[in-house]
């Protein structure tokens, strides 16, 4: 029944459309030809049930028409549905990771892990793995793909700068600590070792964070503020 409704709607619309466009036509000999073609198209639409009867799909025929006239047609309805779905998913992801980040930052600062190094966590941003989210929504930590932690010197804010730990002063005031589970770990280890004392300092930070967040320290990459993280 729905097919018949669709068919009739299509027919009515096409006739309306053809009538309006025919009114727009320049009055010349060409009008007869245009009328003929429009009549043919209407005829085709009227014949669509016959196509069905003879097991010849109208879509198949339409594809051949596409090839002839070079009109590209997309299945736009399906496509927009897909898009909407993925958009909702990504929104959800963003919300969860934001919540996580706030939680982790609070955790780290409350337990005062970094206080002995005169640092505190100022910003945490988390990238979650999009594929794992559906399997176990409670295991949020397992779904973390990457954590970026920004730490800053508390001593730089206080007045006692320079009387202790001159080495730390040399390190940049704000550093980014990155936790990346997707990258290979040996690469990161060599990367941090190359940085000498800076790397040691960052290793310490990673160890502290490991204790607080229960994430293996070898997964943690420390990147200075000025350096690019990728």
């Amino acid at each position: 029944m729905s097919f018949v409704t669709e068919w009739i709607a299509q027919l009515i619309f096409l006739v309306l459309f053809a009538t309006i466009l025919e009114l727009l036509l320049p009055n010349s000999q060409l009008q007869r030809y245009v009328r003929l073609v429009i009549g043919l198209i209407i005829l085709v639409v009227m014949l669509q049930p016959v196509f069905y009867v003879f097991q010849m799909s109208a879509d198949e025929w339409l594809d051949s028409l596409d090839e002839w006239s070079g009109v590209g047609e997309e299945n736009s309805a399906d496509w927009s549905m897909e898009e909407q779905k993925s958009e909702i998913e990504s929104n959800q992801l963003a919300y969860i990771s934001e919540q996580m980040a706030v939680q982790l930052q609070k955790q780290a600062n409350d337990q005062e892990v970094l206080d002995e190094m005169d640092k505190h966590v100022t910003d945490v941003s988390i990238v979650l793995a999009p594929t794992l989210i559906e399997e176990d929504e409670n295991d949020v930590l397992g779904n973390i793909e990457m954590i970026e932690v920004t730490v800053s010197d508390t001593s730089a804010e206080g007045e006692d700068s320079g009387n202790e730990d001159g080495e730390i002063q040399k390190i940049e005031k704000v550093e980014t600590v990155k936790v990346d589970t997707s990258q290979s770990f040996t690469e990161e280890g060599s990367e941090t070792k190359g940085r000498g004392e800076d790397g040691d300092k960052k290793d310490l930070i990673r160890k502290r964070l490991e204790d607080v967040w229960q994430i293996p320290s070898e997964r943690i990459t420390v990147v200075g503020k000025g350096e690019s993280s990728e």
């Binding site: 096409l14 466009l21 028409l65 006239s69």
Partner: peptide, 10 residues
């Protein structure tokens, strides 16, 4: 939800 092919041809 009408097929655009007809319309584009016209």
């Amino acid at each position: 939800q009408i097929n655009m092919v007809y319309m584009e041809t016209i």
